[in-house]
Amino acid sequence: MNEFVQEIQARFEVLWSNPQRPDLMQIGVRQVNALPLLTWLKSNTGYFILNHFSAVDWIEDGEFQLTYLLTDYAARRSLMVCVRIDRAAPTAESVHHLWPEAVTYEQEMFEMFGISFPGSPRQGVDLLLEGWEDIPPMRRDFDTAAFAEEAFGFRPGRTHTNPRDRVAIAFGQKGFLHDH
């Protein structure tokens, strides 16, 4: 698949490539090149199926990564196109005109990550999270544990013992720099 990466490189700038498996290649491209590349792949190569489309929250880098998984069924291999976008203003060009099924993915990413795809038909229509008011829940700064704590009650009779406390009490742990 390395020759194919070189073929892409001849047309679009490939930032990095990573052959994950013999039948799966990962490449990174700039956001400005994403739509032209995807259009070219769909029109001119065997990779015309959008198998999966999702996002990753790279909160440390201040970026989201959009991952387009394209599959060449005839050759039985896949290409993962990774595009980093700004996390502070997360907007990307919609690909629903290339693949109608992208509408649902884009609807989901709007809901779960807050990434908007202007022009995509069902942007902002609730998919799973009816009446959601918090930050999008797949963002890593969303505190899942705190949400679960608040949203769901605890069954009565639950007790939890901290392992550290149990050991400290069982073995009589003390401190000698301070009076207790």
């Binding site: 899942t144 544990a145 679960a148 704590e149 769901f152 605890f154 639950r158 007790t159 939890h160 013992t161 901290n162 392992p163 149990r166 050991v167 069982a170 073995f171």
Partner: peptide
């Protein structure tokens, strides 16, 4: 993440096992 698991007393604490 769902706070579904409690640690409950099952046996004595030993060196190597909180019990």
């Amino acid at each position: 993440q769902n706070a579904a698991i409690d640690m409950v007393v099952n046996r004595d604490a030993t060196k190597g096992d909180t019990g």
